[in-house]
Amino acid sequence: MSRDPRVDDYIAQAAEPLRPLLEQLRDMAHRALPEAEEAIKWSVPHFTVRGKNVAGMSAFKAHCAFGIHGDAMSRRFIRVTSEADMPLAAELMPLLREAADRILGDRFPGKALVERKPRPEIPMPTDFAAVLTATPDAQAAFEQFAPSHRRDYLEWITEAKTAATRDKRMAQAAEWIAEGKTRNWKYDKPRKSS
């Protein structure tokens, strides 16, 4: 597994008592999943196999967490506050391997993950299209957004129960979009400058 420098940076920015714990968790993931790649997803380090998330880890103020992905029955979260809480490699590594096999469908061919069908596209409402056209910065930014971010705005606008609410949401959306903000921008983690 190659090491992603962004994961190095993430660990370096964690509180001092958590750094060695994160490094140990990372090392166990490397040993259990030699074919995995590191990535930053949702602003935290993840370990992926063939593009599928197998595990992720996060640093908080006084603890770190290690989550093993899978279906609802097999998902696990481990909270580590000190060396005493660290899971044994003999216990954690098989869980990681099982999760990778399950997620990829290699070990349980009959239980491979079902490919999800994409959600139906939400058609652009003509009144919102007119608002975007009247605000060129918003129009340009909206076209550059990821499909999920465009969908968030379209759902928010089309789910309004009254015309007044819809108009208010469209005006607010145009303002935020022109500023390059996603629909849920208040919850986005600020990006650290290099």
Rank of each mutant, 00 (worst) to 15 (best):
M1I: 10
S2R: 12
P5K: 04
P5W: 00
P5H: 01
P5D: 03
D9T: 12
Q13R: 15
Q13C: 06
A14Y: 02
A15Y: 03
P20N: 02
L21K: 07
L22F: 05
L22R: 04
E23Q: 00
E23W: 02
L25K: 01
D27T: 10
D27N: 08
D27I: 01
M28T: 04
P34R: 13
E35H: 11
E37T: 14
K41G: 11
K41C: 10
W42H: 10
W42D: 13
W42P: 02
V44D: 00
V44N: 01
V44E: 03
F47D: 04
R50Y: 02
G51D: 13
M57Q: 10
A59I: 10
A59F: 14
F60Y: 15
K61P: 13
K61G: 13
H63Q: 13
C64M: 15
A65T: 14
A65P: 11
G67T: 14
H69Q: 14
G70R: 11
M73G: 12
S74T: 14
S74R: 14
S74P: 00
R75F: 03
R75S: 05
F77G: 09
I78G: 03
I78K: 02
S82A: 00
E83A: 15
P87Y: 13
A89S: 15
L95W: 07
L95T: 01
L96I: 02
E98C: 00
A99W: 11
A100Y: 13
R102W: 05
L104V: 03
G105V: 11
G105P: 11
D106W: 15
R107C: 13
A112G: 15
A112M: 05
A112V: 08
V114T: 15
V114F: 09
E115T: 11
R116G: 01
M124G: 03
M124R: 03
T126K: 06
D127P: 09
F128R: 08
L132V: 08
T133W: 05
A138R: 05
A138Q: 08
A140V: 06
A141K: 14
Q144L: 06
F145T: 06
A146K: 11
A146L: 09
A146E: 12
P147G: 07
S148D: 09
Y153R: 01
Y153E: 01
E155W: 00
E155G: 02
E155I: 07
E155V: 03
T158N: 12
K161A: 12
R166I: 05
R166Y: 10
D167L: 11
R169V: 01
R169Q: 04
M170Q: 09
A173I: 06
A173R: 09
A173G: 06
A174Y: 05
W176R: 13
I177D: 06
I177Q: 03
G180K: 09
G180S: 08
T182V: 03
R183I: 00
Y187W: 07
K189E: 10
K189W: 10
K189M: 09
S193E: 04
S194M: 02
